[in-house]
Measured scan of single mutants.
Amino acid sequence: MATGGRRGAAAAPLLVAVAALLLGAAGHLYPGEVCPGMDIRNNLTRLHELENCSVIEGHLQILLMFKTRPEDFRDLSFPKLIMITDYLLLFRVYGLESLKDLFPNLTVIRGSRLFFNYALVIFEMVHLKELGLYNLMNITRGSVRIEKNNELCYLATIDWSRILDSVEDNYIVLNKDDNEECGDICPGTAKGKTNCPATVINGQFVERCWTHSHCQKVCPTICKSHGCTAEGLCCHSECLGNCSQPDDPTKCVACRNFYLDGRCVETCPPPYYHFQDWRCVNFSFCQDLHHKCKNSRRQGCHQYVIHNNKCIPECPSGYTMNSSNLLCTPCLGPCPKVCHLLEGEKTIDSVTSAQELRGCTVINGSLIINIRGGNNLAAELEANLGLIEEISGYLKIRRSYALVSLSFFRKLRLIRGETLEIGNYSFYALDNQNLRQLWDWSKHNLTITQGKLFFHYNPKLCLSEIHKMEEVSGTKGRQERNDIALKTNGDQASCENELLKFSYIRTSFDKI
């Protein structure tokens, strides 16, 4: 039985969820670079991206490699990797027998973001014989899940209580170790020597080791999670996991709180800001991140802002960003909400898709409305799209047979046209069989910064309504002859009103 693990408890099935942008060198404390989270699957090609990484700022997932063999891993080693800020997950990587050479110096898994409450997941690794993470000293947050690894031993010899604050939620089941077939031998045991430290858990006094050649490092209890030197002297209180010299914040392997210019500090002093819960960055760093993602459509890219001495992905609820200094300031009234469309555009074809934009005031991208039916549609669209004030790209209304009016965009005031449909149009209306009105132009103002209007096959939309939009939106004169079809717009509506004058002759039985 794995020490510190839980057996036999019912657990939810383990679901495996399925960018080499360097964020800056980590400095003297770390020998390499800070790398983003990685999802490495199918083959070993991307694994080489770990070569210079000291910190993975995010998670590391290595999974679904069915053609790899043990010899493929023999020359692979990433000794610079010290810390993973989120979680480490391995799933069905064939041929991998140990992690001792792959990650010989991995010391800390912070667990800032977890995989279903777990910071370390080893699942269905069919050839893994031992973990071998002999320098792993601290899992700051989260638990361990090690399950269905039929060859995995050296679990009962690990004292997880020396690595985690609590072992109650560890789930370590259905491994070879369960069948008591392992016969784990710690260093020196074969020669009758006791080389590794022994600890007591559940009444068992057991030597602690990761492999037959690597003991588990056990520091004096007084050192807590700070770690200790090879001689057993406690590291500085700002260290986490390990250090090369005692009581020196510049000799830590990793930091308990924050890293700044080669030393570990309790908090980031001005003019620095907390970033990702582990390091200090200056304003320029946060500003660069903001600008890199301002026009990016890459998933996970955030326009970072500053709030409460932190550089964070977005302002919290009730705050909006001051564009001059990136500071989050309290909103006066309802907060603006910028919604970034991942692929640059979004099609609204149902109430469900409209709900995804609920509360958005600025759309960074283009909207395509293609709704053919739905219950209580006008009210639903207004509830979900009615706060949109600005669209950076274009607005396209296409084959939306259920629409009679666009009044559900009740606050839309600006279409920038930074991206144009077919390279020309910022407003595009095609084949809307029941569209009769755009907006009530006596109450609604709309500016279209650039781009043209396109109207074709809107049989109940009168040309007068379209011409009014040209005047109000500032697009009059931009359109070419064929942009607004004269014969297919309003051709099934009563669009022309003329005053009919009647004269009559009164007659009676005795007068003409």
Rank of each mutant, 00 (worst) to 15 (best):
Q245R: 05
L60C: 05
H212P: 13
T194D: 14
D39G: 03
T199Q: 09
G32S: 03
T229W: 06
V265Q: 14
V200I: 08
Y273G: 01
N150P: 12
P220H: 07
K191D: 15
P31S: 05
E238W: 04
N202P: 08
P104A: 02
V200F: 12
S98W: 01
C255Y: 01
T329F: 08
S244R: 13
S161I: 07
C243D: 01
C268V: 00
C328R: 01
I222W: 14
M65T: 05
F285M: 08
S143Q: 04
C331W: 03
E49D: 12
L152F: 03
V218N: 09
N242R: 12
H127Y: 02
C252V: 00
I146L: 11
E51K: 00
G241V: 07
N170Y: 06
K176T: 14
C209R: 04
T85E: 06
R263Q: 03
E33S: 08
N257F: 08
Y259C: 15
F275P: 01
C293V: 05
Q303I: 12
Y134M: 14
D178A: 13
G241P: 01
R74F: 04
R279G: 14
N175F: 12
E97S: 06
L152R: 00
H236R: 03
F258T: 06
L102Q: 00
C219N: 14
L88R: 01
N309T: 10
E314M: 06
F103G: 00
V200Q: 09
T329C: 05
A119P: 00
F275A: 04
P271N: 04
K176E: 13
K148R: 14
C315W: 00
V206I: 02
V121E: 00
A230K: 15
P336I: 08
C328S: 01
N308L: 08
G232Q: 08
N150M: 03
M125P: 00
K67T: 11
C293G: 06
Q303S: 04
I201C: 13
L60Q: 00
P269C: 01
D248M: 07
L152I: 08
G132T: 01
L47V: 05
L102C: 02
N175H: 14
N170A: 10
K193I: 11
C243M: 00
K129H: 13
K67P: 12
H226F: 15
A119Y: 00
P270Q: 09
S213G: 13
Q245P: 02
L174S: 13
K292L: 15
S323E: 13
N195Q: 06
M83C: 06
M321L: 05
K176S: 11
L99F: 09
P316Y: 04
F116P: 01
G227Y: 13
L50R: 02
N322W: 06
L89A: 01
Y171M: 08
E181N: 14
S166H: 03
A190T: 12
H290Q: 14
C215D: 08
P316K: 04
D248R: 03
D247V: 06
L50G: 02
S112D: 10
R279A: 12
I185G: 15
E314L: 08
G232M: 10
N309I: 03
K148H: 15
L88Q: 01
D75C: 04
F283W: 04
R145P: 00
P336M: 08
G188S: 08
S317K: 13
R92T: 02
T45I: 07
C209M: 02
E314C: 13
R141H: 08
L233Y: 15
S225R: 09
P70W: 06
S112I: 15
H302R: 07
H214K: 01
P334N: 05
L29Q: 06
N135D: 07
L96R: 00
H290D: 03
L131Q: 01
C328D: 00
T157L: 08
V305K: 10
L128I: 08
D288L: 12
E168F: 06
L164E: 01
D75F: 04
H236Y: 03
D178H: 12
K292S: 05
C53Y: 02
I146Y: 01
A230W: 13
I306E: 13
M83S: 06
F205V: 12
L63T: 08
T267E: 07
I139E: 00
P246F: 13
P31G: 15
K80L: 10
I62M: 15
L106N: 04
Q287A: 12
H302S: 11
N325V: 06
P316H: 02
N52T: 12
D72P: 15
A156Q: 08
C228M: 02
I146D: 00
N149Y: 00
C235S: 00
S166G: 10
E180M: 08
P313V: 04
C219K: 02
Y272K: 08
H48Y: 04
Y171G: 15
C53T: 00
A156M: 07
N295Y: 13
P270G: 04
F283H: 03
S161A: 14
Q276A: 13
S284G: 04
S237M: 06
K80G: 13
C255W: 00
D159Q: 09
C186Y: 03
I146T: 01
N295G: 14
N42P: 03
V121K: 00
S213P: 09
S54R: 12
D159A: 05
V305Y: 06
C293A: 06
S213C: 04
C186W: 04
C228I: 02
N138D: 08
S77H: 11
M125C: 01
P36D: 01
S317F: 08
W160K: 01
P270E: 07
L60A: 01
C301D: 03
I306V: 05
P271S: 11
E266K: 00
N42F: 04
N138M: 14
H28V: 04
N117Q: 08
P270V: 07
P336C: 06
Q204N: 14
S296Y: 06
Y154S: 11
N138I: 04
F205L: 04
Q299S: 05
E238Y: 04
Y273P: 02
L90R: 00
C335P: 10
P220V: 03
L155F: 06
S98G: 08
L136V: 03
L102K: 00
V173T: 02
H127D: 07
G111F: 01
Q204D: 14
T189W: 03
G58C: 01
Q299H: 15
L81Q: 00
D169N: 15
N43V: 05
Y118F: 13
F283Y: 10
L102S: 01
